[in-house]
Design a protein around this nucleic acid. Structure first.
Lengths: 106, 106
DNA sequence: TCAATAGTTCAATATTCTTGAACAATGGGA
DNA sequence: TCCCATTGTTCAAGAATATTGAACTATTGA
C-alpha cells in the first residue's frame, strides 16, 4: 500500500474543501467525525455504500485536507483536521456543519 | 429558448450550494456578484473562459439557487440570491466569501 | 428585413464518479 | 509459522459530469 497523501495545512484550498463537502456521503462522514472521536471507514455513517466507494470518499476528504487517516492495527483511524482547518479557513467548517441538512422543506 | 429554471428558496440544498461554490470560476463569479450589482455573463470576471463554459457555470449557479438570471434586453441580468440564501443557510455564504482565496501559502 | 450582440444548446472529447473484483496489510489463533 | 478473517486500497469498466467549438435562439437597432 502506498503511503496515503495528506496535504500540508497551507496547501489546503477553499475549492478543495468545498468540493469535498459537496457530496452527501462525505458531508455525513465529516459530520460524524466532528461529533465523535476517530472512526474507521466502516463507522463512517454510510452503511449502504460499498467499501470501494467509501474508500474513494475518504481519499477525496484526505486529499482535500479535511481528514487525517492513520493505520491502527487492522483498521484506519480517521480524524477531522479541525484545528488546522479552523486556522486556515476561520469559521468555514462551523458554518457548513451548523446548517440543518435534514429536511429541505421551507 | 426554454425558460430558465430557478429553484424555490426552500428547495435549495446545502450540497448543491457547496458544489456550485467548489469551482474556481464559479466562486469568482459569486464573489463578483456579491461585491457589485447585477452583471451580465460577459462581466462575470472570467474573461478567458469561452461563452459556452460560462453559460454552463451560470446554469450550475442558477440551478443550485445561488444566482437569479433575468433577461434584460439583449443580455442577462444575474443577481446573487443573497437574502434567500442567508435565510436558508445563515452565515454560510459569508463564511465562504470571507475566506482569503488568493495565496495558498502558509 | 438584415445584421450585430448575448447566451443557450448541441455534440464530441475528457475527466471524474461508482462499484465489483482482485490485492495488500495487520492481527489472531492453531 | 502458516492460515485466515477483517479492513482498506487499487484496478477496471461503465456511468455521469465537465469543457468547448459550432450552430442556434432571442432581442435590439438600422
Amino acid at each position: 500500500m502506498r503511503s496515503l497523501h495528506h496535504p500540508a495545512a497551507g496547501a489546503i484550498t477553499l475549492e478543495g474543501v468545498l468540493h469535498a463537502l459537496s457530496d452527501p456521503a462525505r458531508l455525513q462522514i465529516v459530520r460524524n467525525l466532528d461529533e465523535s472521536c476517530p472512526r474507521t471507514c466502516g463507522e463512517a455513517g454510510c452503511p449502504s455504500l460499498p467499501r470501494s466507494t467509501l474508500s474513494h470518499h475518504f481519499r477525496i476528504l484526505r486529499e482535500a485536507g479535511l481528514v487525517r487517516s492513520e493505520r491502527d492495527g487492522v483498521s484506519m483511524r480517521n480524524t477531522l483536521r479541525r484545528d488546522e482547518l479552523d486556522k486556515r479557513f476561520p469559521g468555514l467548517l462551523a458554518a457548513v456543519l451548523s446548517q440543518d441538512c435534514g429536511s429541505e422543506a421551507d
